[in-house]
Design a protein around this nucleic acid. Structure first.
Length: 423
RNA sequence: GGAGAGGUGGGUGAGUGGCUGAAACCAACAGUUUGCUAAACUGUCGUACGGGAAACUGUACCGGGGGUUCGAAUCCCCCCCUCUCCGCCA
């Protein structure tokens, strides 16, 4: 959620920058400003009225104590009218606030000035491509064939148990999952992230705090009996640790890492996108989250980008980093880097990580603030990134490391796996 | 799931209708003292939204929502949460 004060002060700039996200904000913004004027006006009137009531009430109390019942009762009569007026104003204030909020919540975050313009993934800017490891020739089976060949991922049984998009990992397949999770968590810890283990279900307030509600309502699994949502990413519970919090400036940056299973309905996906491990309803991911000082958030973003790149290098996977254009970026993000690994079997890039700076957009909803040295309170910045999401990493690993003898495990993972080859 | 107790500022905790945005203590922060640390002393110490150039000031908030009243942290109703006991159980 954008800050009202910012919209008020930099109206033209806000509208202008929203265009980068292909969002025509002119109308909404002016409506927001209009409602905000009404809101402030109404509040002023209501406050004044209540100030009057308060003084009256005090006087009445005093008169009663002095035994001046007659005078007190006369004053009492005056309060009836005040109350009526106050009620009106209160209702007006409430409804204006609600209207204002509904509009405000639907305005996306402003893209960073360095954001490439464009509408679709085609317009994204490739800022780094490490393709040396891409095999120039040879037969490479897609991972779903390898999965059944070595009996390490059983999609059919997963479908039987639950439904499509819920694979059953078996034997070395299951152990590889566990190895990757541990590897990612250990690496994150080495980078200064505090490991946390969050709940996998969240309440509506939390889902709202990070922007999943109302924006992505239909994408989350929902348990109506208890009114809880299954998390689509650990970002939700981890960032919500700091909801309604005022941190001390010296506590920044906060760095957390969490493994979680992630649940996504992925309504509307189909075709080659959902084949094998490409897109699942349940998958594993290690997420890194940072809460930073506003002036440090872009530096943190670059650090996170370097960190994720380092992970992919250690895994010896060809990858590229893409800076998302305005149209491809998420609602809440100001700047996002996507990481894509090369799928040797499918001959295409697969997204495995998304690293974003949300600036104060999430903080504003979350009421996540920090107190500076002078005791002033400001919104902090939040960032997060996958480090990393497992399924497509597994897909890429299986495909690129296949040999006639079996699938080779990358050096860094061997101690975690406890085996060097899947055969 | 059943029964009971309770939810007050960063923490402990006082407050049962007006003088309480909230005592006291602890923690925290700043200063004095000190060779340093500690101790002691002094001071500061909730948030949000308004008004004001500023000093300052108005309103709201004592789990959440509603109600009674001229006036509610305090009384009433609903909801949520926590704790204790019982039941069940990884």
């Amino acid at each position: 959620m954008l800050q009202l004060s910012f919209i008020r002060e930099k109206t033209a700039e806000v509208i202008d920058r929203l265009k980068l996200k292909n969002f025509d904000g002119a109308e909404v913004i002016s409506e927001i400003l209009r409602l905000d004027d009404i809101r402030r006006e109404t509040q002023k009137a209501l406050d004044d009225l209540q100030a009057q009531s308060n003084t009256l009430a005090k006087e009445i109390g005093k008169l009663f104590k002095q035994g001046k019942t007659q005078e007190a009762n006369t004053l009492k009569e005056n309060t009836a009218e005040l109350k009526l007026k106050a009620k009106d104003l209160d209702e007006k204030l409430e409804s204006t606030r609600k209207e204002l909020d509904e509009l405000l919540v639907r305005v996306p975050n402003l893209p960073h000035t360095g954001t490439p313009s464009g509408r679709t993934a085609e317009d994204n800017e490739i800022i780094l491509s490490e393709e040396a490891l891409i095999p120039s020739s040879g037969e490479y089976l897609p991972h779903w064939d390898l999965a059944s060949k070595y009996d390490i991922i059983d999609f059919t049984t997963g479908t039987k148990i639950t439904g499509s998009g819920f694979p059953l990992y078996k034997g070395k397949g299951a152990r590889l999952q566990r190895a990757l999770i541990n590897f990612f968590l250990d690496e994150a810890r080495g980078e200064g992230y505090l490991e946390v283990q969050p709940p996998y279900m969240v309440n509506a307030v939390s889902a709202f705090g990070t922007g999943q509600l109302p924006d992505k309502d239909g994408q989350m699994y929902y348990a109506p009996v208890d009114d809880l949502y299954l998390i689509p990413t650990a970002e939700v519970p981890v960032t919500n640790i700091y909801r309604d919090t005022i941190l001390k400036a010296r506590d920044l940056p906060v760095k957390n890492a969490a493994y979680s299973a992630c649940f996504r309905r992925e309504a509307g996906s189909y075709g080659k996108d959902v084949r094998g491990l490409n897109r699942l309803h349940q998958f594993d991911k290690v997420e890194i989250v940072q809460v930073t000082h506003p002036e440090k958030s872009y530096q943190a973003l670059e650090e996170m980008r370097e960190y994720v790149a380092g992970l992919l290098r250690k895994l010896e996977l060809p990858f590229r980093i893409v800076k998302l254009c305005g149209g491809d970026m998420s609602f809440t993000s100001a700047l996002t880097y996507d990481f894509e690994v090369w799928s040797a079997g499918q001959k295409r890039w697969l997204e495995v990580s998304s690293v974003s700076n949300f600036e104060a957009f999430q903080s504003n909803r979350l009421k996540l603030r920090y107190k500076d040295e002078a005791g002033k309170i400001h919104l902090a910045h939040t960032l997060n990134g996958s480090a990393l999401a497992l399924p497509r990493i597994v897909a890429a690993l299986l495909e690129i490391n296949q040999t006639h003898e079996g699938i080779m495990i990358p050096e860094v993972l061997k101690p975690y796996c406890g085996f060097a080859m899947i055969n």
